[in-house]
Amino acid sequence: MVSSSQEDVAGIRERIDTPVTYIRPILEWIFWVGFAALVYAQTGYFDKKIPEYAFGATGWPRALTIAMIIGATGQFVYQMASIWRGKDLAAIDGDDSEPQANGKTATLGSKLQRLGIFVVPLIYLYLMPRIGFYVATPIFVVVLLLLFEVRSVITIATVTAIVYGLALLVFTRFFYVALPTGRIEAFYDINNAIISIVRAGM
């Protein structure tokens, strides 16, 4: 009969012997050392002497990149030691990316939804200087609510009206924040018309 401790040791050996286990620490180490090397290489573009300061403009950032390599190596050794001791790297290293048991199954729709969470704000930012804050924002709010799985038309309309209305009232009417009005002429006119309406009577 095989004891549980023997089973544990066998499990650990099996895990240690799997090359996949080592991939994450190695990739992390490569990432940080690569990042430090990239920063170090960029310091060459401003490697100018400063008459009153011997370390120049590059001394401090270069020291930081070396410290970063030491830190990355320390972490690598720590992670490898943890693997050798048979510890679950994901547990001690904070990787909670495993889907929970009660979570949804990953369909194409849910994958697109997750992608949208990252991409939609970037599209909004791309559009904002072009079509203006005042046109882009209500569309952004509606799309965000859809991404957050709000499907009721009344809720979408109400939340959009409240969020957009409050932002206009506080920042455009009271604080006069100069938000982008757009570079495309037609949108520029629409944005300015909205500003005029919001500031009416002032």
């Binding site: 940080w32 920063v39 401003f46 100018k48 400063i50 008459p51 009153e52 300061y53 120049g56 403009a57 401090w60 950032p61 930081l64 990149t65 410290a67 970063m68 830190g71 990355a72 320390g74 972490q75 720590y78 290293d93 904070g94």
Partner: peptide
């Protein structure tokens, strides 16, 4: 280690701009 690496990233980002002695 992750804490220190995070701090180093912040310190490196803080060097973007001009240097405090010569304004380079």
């Amino acid at each position: 280690w992750k804490g220190w690496l995070s701090v180093f990233v912040g310190l490196i980002i803080a060097t973007i701009g001009t240097d405090p002695v010569g304004g380079v």
